[in-house]
C-alpha cells in the first residue's frame, strides 16, 4: 500500500501549492492535479466507477474554472482582518478535524450492521438483478431512491444556476 501514501503526499503537496500560489492559473492547475491524484487513488483502491466519474468531473470543473471564471478583474484581497481570518480558519479546522475524528472512529470496518447489508448485496445483487456490475445493480435497483435524489439535486442546481446567471432578465 505504498502507492496510496505516495499519492496522498502528492495531493497534499499540490493542495498546498494551490493555496500558496500567487498566480490564479497555477492554482487552478494545482487543483486539477489534486483531482487527478484522487482519481488515481480511487483506481488503486479498486473503485473504477468512482475513478471514471472523478476524472471526468475534474476535467469539467477545470475547464469551467479556466474558461468561465478565471479573470484578471476578480476582486481578490490578501490584506486586512488577518487576525479574524486566521482565528476563524483555525477554529474551522479544529471543528472539522474533531468531527472527522469522531465520525471515522465510529465507522465499523468489516463488521457490524453495515457488514450484514454489504454481504447481502454481494451475494444476491448479481443473480437478482441480472447486472454484472454490483455498483450499478445497487445504485439503479436497490437504491434507486438515492439515484433519484441525486438527479433531483443536479436538476435543481441546473435550474438555479440558469435562473440566477442568465444574461438578460425577463422584462416585467
Amino acid at each position: 500500500m505504498i502507492e496510496i501514501h505516495l499519492i496522498l503526499l502528492f495531493m497534499i503537496a499540490a493542495a498546498i501549492v494551490a493555496v500558496e500560489a500567487r498566480d490564479l492559473l497555477s492554482s487552478v492547475v494545482a487543483i486539477g492535479s489534486v483531482g487527478i491524484g484522487l482519481s488515481l487513488a480511487f483506481l488503486i483502491l479498486k473503485a473504477p466507477d468512482l475513478a471514471i466519474m472523478q476524472l471526468v468531473v475534474e476535467i469539467m470543473s477545470l475547464v469551467i474554472l479556466v474558461r468561465a471564471t478565471m479573470r484578471q478583474d476578480l476582486p481578490f484581497s490578501m490584506s486586512g482582518r488577518w487576525v479574524f481570518n486566521t482565528f476563524s480558519t483555525v477554529l474551522f479546522m479544529c471543528v472539522f478535524l474533531g468531527a472527522a475524528y469522531i465520525a471515522l472512529k465510529n465507522i465499523p470496518l468489516g463488521g457490524g450492521d453495515f457488514g450484514i447489508a454489504s454481504g447481502v448485496y454481494l451475494r444476491e445483487a448479481i443473480p437478482a438483478t441480472g447486472a454484472k456490475n454490483v455498483v450499478a445493480a445497487i445504485t439503479s435497483n436497490y437504491r434507486l431512491m438515492d439515484t433519484l435524489g441525486e438527479v433531483a439535486a443536479i436538476f435543481t442546481a441546473v435550474v438555479g444556476v440558469m435562473a440566477i446567471a442568465r444574461r438578460v432578465g425577463r422584462p416585467r
Binding site: 466507477d49 471514471i52 455498483v135 450499478a136
Partner: peptide
C-alpha cells in the same frame, strides 16, 4: 455500459 462494467 454502466450495467456491465465501470461507467454510468
Amino acid at each position: 455500459n454502466g450495467h456491465t462494467g465501470p461507467g454510468g
